[in-house]
Simulated assay, not measured.
Amino acid sequence: MKKIKNKSIGLLTALLAIMLLITACSTPAQLSQDAAAEVNGATVSMEEFDKTLALFKLSYEMQYGYNEDIFQQDIGGMTLLENIKEGIMEKLISDVLIAEKAVESGLTVSEEEITEAYEPYRVYEESDENFSAFLKENEIDETFIREQVKKDILLFKYRDFYNENLEMTEEAARKFFDENPEMFSTQEASARHILVADLALADELVVRLESGEDFATLAQEYSTDPGSAVQGGDLGFFPRGVMVPEFEEASFTQPIGEVGAPVQTQHGYHIILVEDRVDNSYDFDEMKESIMGYLKNLEFEKHLEELVGNAEVQKRESL
């Protein structure tokens, strides 16, 4: 009995050892200190991540102006900076996978292509002292920029290669066209307006206009909209969805060439003269090639998502 018990304990000990060994083997290896991610065995370095992040932040600051709080703005439960970091990580992972597929497909990028695409960066660096100082401060040199340019060219080449070998039928394009009519038709109106704060004044101006006084002259004299007043109230052509709802409704329903009754909005009272309306509609034959290209790009995006989903990816949790 004692022998059987000892054998059982020995067997249990062996099984536990095997289980621990399996667990140890299946636990992902820790990322090295200088790695932001591992993608199918290839390393995305923290240096590349940090430099790419610096360039993205510069782009935001150039577009929206510098504000120390801009990157802490809440975007769907995450800060803007966290969103940017997540997007950069996704891009760098995709870059690795696209490079793999490009090699499999026999695609390459020549030094001449890289040099041509790099030229605007070189000119900008030489002409802008602030940009040049930014590059030096973040240790972003020509080698790094050329490598990013190469990746971008490779992305476009692989996308074109994938799309060229993707079958897209005219029937699919027609189905998309029929199911999305709003994408292929735009209404625009051309109007003038006089904006005033007082309804009594608005009514008075309508009477004067109906008596034959010049709309542009009265707009320049009375309108409180500085942008259009100097233009005689002229707003030019605008599509639906641009103006406030009350103004839009009048612009797209009021008879052309007639002054309508004052329209009240949050800005005041508008006297509106609709000068023209156009309906820009496109037929299927005009849009067929564009639609097929659009649908192919959607399929390419799905393809990239599948590549990422099937890849062995390990990302640094805190960046």
Rank of each mutant, 00 (worst) to 15 (best):
A54M: 03
A36P: 02
N40A: 00
N67F: 10
E68H: 12
Q73E: 15
N83H: 14
L135A: 01
R146A: 11
E142F: 05
A37R: 04
E48T: 15
K51W: 09
A99F: 08
A133Y: 08
L107D: 00
T52W: 02
K57P: 06
V103K: 15
V39S: 01
G77S: 04
L81G: 06
N67C: 09
K101S: 13
F131P: 03
E61G: 09
R146C: 07
N40D: 01
A133T: 09
D128Q: 11
E112Q: 13
I75Q: 13
N40Q: 03
G87R: 04
T27K: 11
D141I: 06
T108I: 13
D50Q: 14
E82G: 06
I18G: 03
K51T: 06
S59K: 14
L92R: 05
T43Q: 14
E126C: 05
Y66T: 14
E142D: 10
E68W: 05
G76D: 09
F144N: 01
M78F: 13
K57Y: 05
A102E: 06
P28I: 00
T43P: 06
T43K: 14
Y64L: 09
P120N: 05
M62L: 13
D95F: 04
N83I: 07
Y66Q: 12
L107R: 00
E113M: 00
A54G: 03
I18H: 04
A35F: 02
V103R: 12
N40G: 02
T52R: 10
V123W: 02
E47M: 10
S110P: 09
Q148T: 08
T143E: 15
G87A: 06
F56Y: 15
I140W: 01
M19H: 07
A99N: 15
D128I: 07
I98Q: 02
Y121K: 00
K136E: 13
S127N: 14
A37C: 07
I114T: 07
E119D: 11
S59Y: 12
S59Q: 15
N138Q: 13
L58A: 09
F134D: 01
I93S: 00
A29R: 12
M46A: 05
V44G: 01
I22M: 11
V109T: 03
P28H: 02
E90H: 10
L31K: 00
L135P: 00
D69S: 10
E100L: 02
K136H: 09
L53Q: 06
S94Y: 03
Q73S: 12
R122S: 12
M78Y: 14
L135W: 03
I98V: 15
